[in-house]
Amino acid sequence: MEMSRLFVIFLSAMLVNNFVLSRFLGICPFLGVSRKLDTATGMSLAVIFVMTVASVITWFLNQLLLLMDIPFMRTIVFILVIATLVQFIEILLKKVSPSLYEALGIYLPLITTNCAILGLAILNVQQEYTLMETIFHSIGAGAGFAIALIIFATIRERMDLYEMPESFKGLAGALVTAGLLSMSFMGFQGLVRL
């Protein structure tokens, strides 16, 4: 039972309630870094990593906030922790694994203002997930973000090769494409029975 519940949480975060295509979280990087496949992959990995670490830390912090009875400080504390964490990961990566830093480094600063990270942390609190559920939910959400971003990037790479009406070049075309992608993800709706 426990295992299957975790799996359901993971799957629904990844496909059914896809963060980008159905919850509308993390749209900025979704539109911003989806022009090339390799940047999209780098961003995806960075997001999965930060999401998981940030969720675990914010989970513990939330317990502390509840203990101290100051729930109204949640937003401030969470966003500061996420910002600090991203900085910290950046420094750490630089020291420990320069090659990984090379690959992810430039995306890290962008992640602070990625609403998917803060959104995930707040969602975890709202759904009152346990630590284990939080971890599965975060990995699922990150994977869902990665899937959406990578599919979208491959589509956009091809779109550049085709003729398009002038007004649809850039943002407008990207949004319509995202709409079609979101429509196809609605097919996952019946996948998980809650």
Binding site: S22, E166, F168, A174, L175, V176, T177, A178, L180
Partner: peptide
């Protein structure tokens, strides 16, 4: 109904953005 569902949000905003670009152009 598609327009109140998530895909409709993208489609509507995409079409509006195209319209604005067209007009301002």
């Amino acid at each position: 109904f598609a327009f109140v569902l998530p895909p409709g949000a993208y489609l509507a905003l995409g079409l509006l953005a195209a319209f604005f670009t067209f007009v301002s152009g």
